[in-house]
């Protein structure tokens, strides 16, 4: 069976825009990404597509496939093909660089603002750790789901707020903010809540739920965002409990036995 691919093209240097049509043979196990790479190798070398892992882990290959946001590398052509046609478009609501390649730098800048790492009051201890922090499986479950985010940006494509507001902290960013706020080891909740409760922050979300519907990794950003709102509202009425970061596992009685750790191999360069 032959499948027709309509791929949205955009090449600013030569002013090219619009859809290009390619026809390729449908083989068993062909993913949309495979098909695009086949096109790039055999039919049209000017096609740009971003990918890396080809197994749904790196989050590079998010695109709109037949109208639905998904990862190209884990979408089987035979599952989504409609009347022998597949339409591929880049993720909207993100700046477009070329063809299917979008620019995520503004998203990463916002990600940086919410401090996506465990913050501890005792920085000296954090930089020179002796042992690990305590955490129960229940405490892990509080944030585990949100830490599966691969930053593919698909949630941005189906967020109605992002579609008119570039400055909005996108669903994935707010989900990450929540993920670190509820981490039992973390002590930086105040700083993060201050960042996300500003304008263009968490209260611009009106729970359209598009993000959770689009997410290929089961992250449920909408849930994280609503829970983040709850944290902020709780803080506003003074019900937010002061959080103390998890304790450190009690140190080895005789100190860490470093002799037992094998030495690294000698440097080669």
């Amino acid at each position: 069976m032959k499948v027709k691919f309509f791929v949205k093209r955009y090449i600013p240097d030569i002013g090219k825009e619009g859809f290009d049509e390619y026809e390729i043979e449908l083989t068993e196990g062909l993913t949309v990404l495979d098909a695009l790479l086949y096109i790039k190798e055999n039919i049209d070398q000017s096609l740009s597509v971003r990918y890396s892992c080809r197994m749904g882990i790196c989050g590079s290959c998010g695109m709109i496939i037949n109208g639905k946001p998904d990862l190209a590398c884990h979408t089987q052509v035979k599952d989504v093909v409609e009347n022998g046609i597949i339409k591929v478009e880049p993720i909207p609501n993100l700046p477009l660089v070329r063809d299917l390649v979008t620019d995520m730098s503004s998203v990463f800048a916002k990600h940086k603002k919410i401090k996506p790492f465990v913050i501890r009051k005792d920085e000296k201890e954090q930089e020179n750790p002796v042992r690990e922090y305590k955490q129960t499986p229940e405490e892990l479950l509080e944030y585990l789901q949100f830490s599966y985010c691969i930053q593919c940006g698909l949630c941005i494509s189906s967020c109605p707020v992002s579609s008119t507001d570039e400055l909005f902290f996108e669903p994935l960013i707010l989900a990450q903010a929540y993920r670190f706020c509820v981490d039992s080891r973390d002590e930086g909740i105040e700083e993060r809540l201050n960042v996300v409760s500003q304008s263009h922050g968490v209260f611009n979300c009106h729970f359209a739920g598009g993000c959770s519907n689009a997410c290929p990794k089961g992250v449920d950003p909408a849930l994280a965002i609503q829970l983040l709102k709850r944290l902020i509202l709780k803080r506003a009425i003074g019900f937010l409990k002061k959080k103390k970061g998890a304790d450190i596992v009690s140190p080895y009685p005789e100190g860490p036995n470093k002799d037992k750790i094998p030495k690294p191999p000698p440097k080669t360069v």
Binding site: G67, N93, S158, S163, E166
Partner: peptide, 14 residues
Amino acid sequence: KKNLKGFKGWFLPE
């Protein structure tokens, strides 16, 4: 280019 969906994003879900 910006490639925002604009008001279409509000009223026409994918």
